[in-house]
Nucleic acid binder design. Structure first.
Lengths: 119, 119
DNA sequence: TCCTCATTTCAATGATTGTTGAATTATAGG
DNA sequence: CCTATAATTCAACAATCATTGAAATGAGGA
């Protein structure tokens, strides 16, 4: 991932409404949610949510698809993963010995216990 | 890491000069660099670099220490790691099976081959 | 003490970004 | 074809953020 693209992604995630949308869509998984449902969930106006969705889409954090009258957005897991990889490379490229052990702690393990997913 | 703190970190990293500073300091390692040297390296005015350094410090991405007449900044590897962990949790909490395998690819391994570190 | 170097602070200005509500496009059903 | 629903676009305004240069602080050496 290029630096410029990473910056766009960071900017997208730095805004309260947008970060909440991303987290919501990650929880929602590949099924995603309609724009209207997202607006309701994060409690902002349709036009405002549309503005933020466009920004997130441009940043490669979410992906849209049309389904009947609705437009369904879902998390772009590839984009999210690339951003994590960018950060990790940045962190590790210089001095792996510093952060490698610490990172193990934050590892993504499928053996994770599922909680009552909520928000 | 709390959402609010994560947003502050994302905002800090979303700005060109600041992201360049962080990457520079990660490369520099624990020794860090003096504010003036950073200013020269990223080619911005002293007052401007000071503004950005303060922002990065506030975001928990870098850490300062005085050394004689200089103030030396170094990457806050703990802060960086926490941010990565936040992103990974977000990504994995909902659907680990989606991103776990993909993330393995981006893993931080001490066995990483060192390239002619550049940017 | 006085002078210099390193950095920060301040106030002003310009540039970006977020929010709002009204108007528009697109899809489905009667 | 007309109406209703779902979402986006647009223009205006408010708010936040970045940059600049000048002035202030703080540390060390003559």
């Amino acid at each position: 991932m290029e630096e410029r693209q990473a910056r766009t992604a960071f900017a997208a995630l730095s805004q309260e409404t947008r970060l909440r949308i991303v987290r919501l869509l990650v929880q929602a998984g590949p099924d995603g949610m309609a724009a209207g449902a997202i607006a309701e969930a994060v409690d902002v106006s349709p036009s405002n949510v549309s503005f933020h969705l466009k920004d997130l889409e441009h940043a490669g954090m979410i992906v849209p698809r049309r389904e009947a009258r609705s437009i369904i957005y879902s998390a772009d897991f590839t984009g999210l993963r690339d951003l994590i990889a960018f950060l990790m490379k940045d962190c590790c490229a210089g001095h792996p010995e510093i952060c490698a052990p610490a990172l193990a702690d934050a590892q993504c393990k499928p053996s994770i216990k599922k909680k009552k997913a909520h928000a």
